[in-house]
Computed example of a mutant assay.
Amino acid sequence: MKALRTGLLGAVLATTAVVVPAPEVAPDDVALVRAQRSGAVDLTPDVVWILAVGSDARPGQSMTRSRGDALQMVGIDSRTGAASAIGIPRDSFVAIPGHSANRVNAAMVLGGPELLGRTVAGMVGVQPDYVMVTRFPFFEDLVDDIGGITVTNPRRFSDSSLKPEGFAQGRIRLNGYGAMAFARIRKTLAGGDFARSANQQRVLRGIGAEIRAKADKPGFVERGVLSVVQHMSTDLGPGELFRLARAVARVDASRITTCVVGGSVATIRGMSVVRPNLTQARRLGAAARGDATLPRGC
């Protein structure tokens, strides 16, 4: 396999994984910021929460001041290896601190990753410790560099632009581009944004499984963290990055639980939006807050 361009923390599920670009990749292809400004987060024995965001930024646009196309709130219990992901439909119409209500992904445009973190915290009742933002080409590199991933697809679907040949039902193997398309297609899915968020969780689970299988190789985590320090845009120090990467590497695939916040489609101010089920969102946050475990079947 070619040299890994990614280490651990990013796309987690198992959301997650620390994503590390190679020297030839621009540093602004991935950003990791501390959402809690009081100081370094103690990863033990507490659950650490990471808001993973796929930025919809176009070339030349600021990745951290563009709308998020994928939003997953990920919790990791470094004591037990349990992990959870709460999918946030990107068009959820919610209160944005200091601004009028809008789609949740508008928060990053208005105030960067920190405001997006506060907005999602208002939905689920859990404040993320970190916000991680990546561009989708970087995400494709991640999947290719770990050798591809396996996902279980509940039903066949396709998209005339991203994947005309479609994805078969059942267990399928995806390369970087395939994983990106699987995670981004929405219009041809019966469940729309809700089904897309569930597919994103399937991709993150696949990434987590591949990374966990390689995490015990000598030097894997260490090399990843060093690469992060050199090439990632972050306000974290090397020690904090290393502890975070270790927490991700210890995730037990059999203890990963996921759920997508439900809701209904509506039109507000001329926009097609999702009215999220905030009662469910806060119930999920309360359930996973202490041990990063969600109820099976949501």
Rank of each mutant, 00 (worst) to 15 (best):
M1D: 14
T6R: 11
T6I: 15
G10Q: 10
T15F: 10
A17P: 13
V20C: 11
A22S: 11
E24P: 10
A26I: 07
D28G: 06
A31G: 09
Q36S: 11
G39V: 06
V41W: 00
V47I: 07
V48H: 03
V53R: 00
G54V: 02
S55Q: 04
A57R: 02
R58C: 07
P59A: 13
P59E: 13
M63V: 11
T64G: 02
G68L: 07
M73S: 05
D77N: 12
T80W: 00
A82H: 08
S84G: 08
A85N: 12
A85D: 07
G87C: 04
V94A: 01
I96H: 00
P97E: 02
H99M: 08
H99L: 03
A101K: 05
L115F: 04
R118S: 10
R118A: 08
V120S: 01
G122V: 02
V124Y: 00
Q127D: 08
P128C: 02
Y130I: 04
F136G: 01
D141R: 15
L142D: 06
L142K: 04
D144R: 04
G147Y: 05
V151G: 07
S160Y: 09
P164E: 12
Q169M: 11
R171E: 15
I172T: 10
G176Y: 03
A181H: 07
L189I: 01
L189D: 00
G192E: 01
G192I: 06
D193M: 01
D193G: 05
F194M: 11
Q200L: 04
Q200R: 03
R202F: 07
G206R: 08
I207V: 15
G219D: 02
F220L: 12
G224N: 10
V225E: 07
V225Y: 07
L226C: 09
V228E: 15
Q230Y: 08
G237V: 09
A247S: 05
A247F: 06
A249D: 13
D252F: 14
S254I: 08
S254N: 12
S264E: 13
R269L: 10
S272C: 08
R275M: 15
R275Q: 14
P276R: 10
P276G: 03
A281V: 03
A281K: 01
A281I: 06
L284Q: 03
A286K: 12
A287H: 08
A287G: 03
P295N: 05
